[in-house]
Simulated scan of single mutants.
Amino acid sequence: MGTDRRPGRADAVRAAAVLLAAVLQIVAGALGGTGAYGEPIGTVANSYPHPLLPAGTAFAIWSVIYVWIVALAVRQALPGQRSRALHRATGWWLVAAGVLNAAWVLTFGQRWAVVAQVVIVALLVCLGAALARASRIPAEGWPDRLLTQGAIAFYTGWVAVATMVGAVTTAVSLDAPVNAGVAVAVLLVAAVGLAWAATSADAVLFFAVPVLWALFWIGEATGDTAVRVVVAVVAAVVVLAILRRVVVAGRSATRRRIVWG
């Protein structure tokens, strides 16, 4: 089961830290979402309107992410899982991601937009590192695919788009002129990054679903036709990048790893 050595104290500490970080994200999300600490996240976001701000329904995805990450955290904390190479490779990156996610909620709720943007970039880096490390270790059955590679890829896909949207929100908070032309330019840059991610990591289906979800709700909310068209183009680029990678993959086992982890 990918075990390098017998479980030790370091494994127990790491497993506990991943579980605590998962819970911390939920607590911070509840505080920030309701306005129990700072202003509600939705209120702050809507006070900086721009063409790439998704409709509010998009953010319901956080509930899925939180439940999925808790499931990952519980599984990796089981005695038979703690010393597996997969969990050792990703654990501390997930701890950092959990702390950074909580920090983003709390700083954004205080309208510290620039600080929050720095934090979410760091969050994306940590999740990207966790996904890259998970992609180098073959999954050992569907529990790995669903509860480790899948969870990390799904989380990373959402945060990738959230980082793009956050950059524009930060610019608006600084009174920078953000019009449809700027939004289109940001989307085109994002298309390159998202396509690269879709052709680099495994479990690309899990990565693509939140990306396409976010893009759909951006297109739904924007009132600019040009932005809506470019959003559709970005979505198509992501899908085509994934399809091309799957088609050119050789063995069926390789295809399965690329798609599911």
Rank of each mutant, 00 (worst) to 15 (best):
D202Y: 13
V99S: 02
G91P: 09
A17E: 10
G109H: 09
R136L: 14
A167K: 04
V44D: 04
R256Q: 14
A176L: 15
G150N: 02
V125E: 04
W92V: 00
V95H: 00
R244P: 00
L52Q: 08
A132H: 12
V125R: 04
S47P: 15
R9V: 14
L20M: 11
M164L: 14
G141L: 08
A30M: 12
S135W: 04
V165W: 03
P138I: 06
V165C: 04
T254M: 14
W196A: 14
I120T: 10
Q117F: 15
A191D: 03
L188H: 02
V44W: 05
L19E: 06
A190D: 07
V259N: 12
A55E: 14
V121F: 09
V168W: 01
G141N: 01
A36E: 04
R111M: 10
G166C: 04
A12T: 14
A162M: 02
L86D: 07
P210S: 05
G35M: 13
V248E: 13
F154E: 00
G141A: 06
T43W: 00
G150Y: 06
G157R: 03
R257H: 14
S47R: 15
L174Y: 02
V118P: 03
A60Q: 07
W158S: 02
A203S: 07
D11K: 11
A185T: 11
L123A: 01
L53Y: 07
N179Q: 07
A241F: 13
L205S: 08
A208D: 08
A183K: 10
I242L: 14
V74R: 07
T34Y: 08
G250F: 10
L72M: 15
A85D: 13
A129F: 11
V178L: 05
A160I: 08
D4A: 08
D11G: 10
V233F: 13
V23I: 14
S135Y: 04
G42A: 05
L194W: 07
R245N: 13
A122Y: 04
D11R: 09
A241N: 07
P7V: 13
V121C: 06
R133I: 00
T43D: 13
T43I: 10
G223F: 10
L194S: 07
D144H: 01
L20C: 12
A190V: 04
F154I: 03
A235Q: 10
I137G: 08
A201K: 09
V246N: 12
P143I: 02
A134M: 06
A10R: 15
W158R: 01
A58P: 09
V119C: 08
R257M: 08
P7S: 10
A185H: 01
L243I: 09
G80Y: 06
D4Y: 11
Q25G: 15
R75I: 09
A160F: 01
P51Q: 13
V189A: 14
W196G: 07
A132F: 12
V186G: 01
V159S: 02
L174W: 06
Y48Q: 12
G8N: 14
A235P: 03
R251Y: 10
V227A: 08
V161P: 00
I61K: 00
Q149S: 11
G223D: 15
R5A: 15
N46C: 02
P7T: 10
A55C: 00
L212A: 07
W62L: 00
A235F: 07
V161L: 06
A214D: 01
T43P: 05
G38H: 11
V159R: 00
